[in-house]
Design a binder for these strands. Sequence first.
DNA 1: GCCAAAAATGAAAACATTTGCAATATTGTT
DNA 2: AACAATATTGCAAATGTTTTCATTTTTGGC
Lengths: 324, 324
Amino acid sequence: MSPSTVSRSFNHPDLVKATTRKKIDAAVRRLGYIRNRAAQTIHGIRSGTIGLIVPTVDQAIFAEMIQSFSEAVEELGFTILLASHGFNLDREYALTRKMLEHRVDGVALIGIEHTRDTLDLLAQQEMPTLLLWSFSPQAPFPCVGSDNYQAGYLIGRHVAALGHRQVAAIFPPVEGNDRASLRFAGVKDALAEAGCSIPEAWQLVAPYSVATAKSAVEALIAEGALPTAILCGNDVLAWGALHALNRAGIAVPGRVTVTGIGDFKGSKEFEPSLSTVRIPARTIGARAAAAIVQLTTSEEAVDVAALIPPEIMVRATSGPPRED
Amino acid sequence: MSPSTVSRSFNHPDLVKATTRKKIDAAVRRLGYIRNRAAQTIHGIRSGTIGLIVPTVDQAIFAEMIQSFSEAVEELGFTILLASHGFNLDREYALTRKMLEHRVDGVALIGIEHTRDTLDLLAQQEMPTLLLWSFSPQAPFPCVGSDNYQAGYLIGRHVAALGHRQVAAIFPPVEGNDRASLRFAGVKDALAEAGCSIPEAWQLVAPYSVATAKSAVEALIAEGALPTAILCGNDVLAWGALHALNRAGIAVPGRVTVTGIGDFKGSKEFEPSLSTVRIPARTIGARAAAAIVQLTTSEEAVDVAALIPPEIMVRATSGPPRED
DNA sequence: GCCAAAAATGAAAACATTTGCAATATTGTT
DNA sequence: AACAATATTGCAAATGTTTTCATTTTTGGC
């Protein structure tokens, strides 16, 4: 039983005699032998890992996407090397290098905005790379994701069409976050088409959390002059806004319309049910997994880009502005 | 510039002359050379990866823990190999094997309940292993986590002490989920001490989601006979319950007390603010990261187990049962 | 039982790196 | 300028696997 035979028994079982294979299996079990993928990897054999670099794991929407991405990727025989950079694009570069050191078979990044260094590095190493979550046809790598500008535009148009003209917005900080900035741009453009703009004082910035959004809206309420609609950059912020309004006894949508973006789990079940734009995280995750695996396994160039369109979900938190 | 010198320049820079080091750095940059960790790994050098096997990523509480775990682990120079098994312990075994093939430096599993196979495999391979999330002194590997029984007990006692005797519970399915089953046991024991038990018909089972909890409670409401308290296995279920009650116009806590377990982000900001038991996910994640790294790096046996105690958070959704 | 063909196995090289040891180069001292 | 001491570098072996090629074993037909 030379190493070669053992190797063959694992990789091309049909090439070794049934009886030796039995003996090998027995020995493997007896000794608790486990193949060393590192040793395989230095032969140029695939490492069976996909690097996934995300800003953070603990935002509902990323978590959902990561989950479906990881399910699908595992299904295809790969394992995820996960790293998070906390919206710091320099850390993203460092993490990308690390992924390359680990000889991952492919890399998936969140969003379109990345430093030149990161992009160059991946291109220069000819690493199969996928941009996840956002979609843009002129992105430097194939994208699988939704159109965040469009998402913002849809909800902005919806609110404008209802007749709202006194509108506030709560968005996360937009630096290094193309998702948020594109959504906000879409919202503003849609409102502008209806001749409406968001006053400076009503452009609230709240990092992703129910707590910050709630207190931002509470501050807004305390100031007295309420808008007729509050457009939130994502559903979590909308939840916070709804809690603040609920607490203050302000009717939604009677007095104030509230909208989110994302359609997270639980938004539909919220009372009142949240009007929002659906960005199908699970679909994106699954499609992205298929895409990156295709990218790493197929020799010829393949086009894996996919635009998963956002979809407006008109529910109970949006209505016409109060007449008075 | 032989390979040896280059290697030294990376790993023991002080052993190579400054000028050659410069030359090497220049060449590295020019050629875009990136170290191959796989090749290092087969020398018995650490792979710099920690295997993290979770049931699922997309539950608020896991996501939070994974986030802090991954932050802390990256801080210490490691990267996470992530896999999820969807509460299927056989898949967990397969994933564990895969981690071993990848020669991770350590493995972290969620909860105490695992198949004999998985446990034996890890022990036999002398893999540094950590049990995350739950804590039990007689677990087969060191634990860093909270006491789920205690968490259930605390909330059960709180509700019993308020005077509730007509109590319903909503819990996720408990098979293969020691967290849920221990919590439920704690709740039942605390109630039993007050001479109260949960009728069969009021032991609702709802998989982790706002939607299922909401409809379970809606069904309960439709049946007519309402309990005075609904104890939920986690905060997400409690949110669902609160939405259902809100929709039906049932006062909380005036008519029905609702409690969660977990104290997820947003539970405090909920209206009304959720009474629950705090299980500090971020603390657990960070402590666990330190623990697993210590386990993998230190030669002597170290005791890294840590019990992070749950803490009851009495807020606005719990009150005495209505007098009538 | 012998031969050719086919099947099964083993030996050796290769992969990218690290490390002990030997060889070489650089110092500082006289 | 020569010597010793020290600093720097390269050689070679080793790591665990795969793969090509050569060798050995088995099989089937006679």
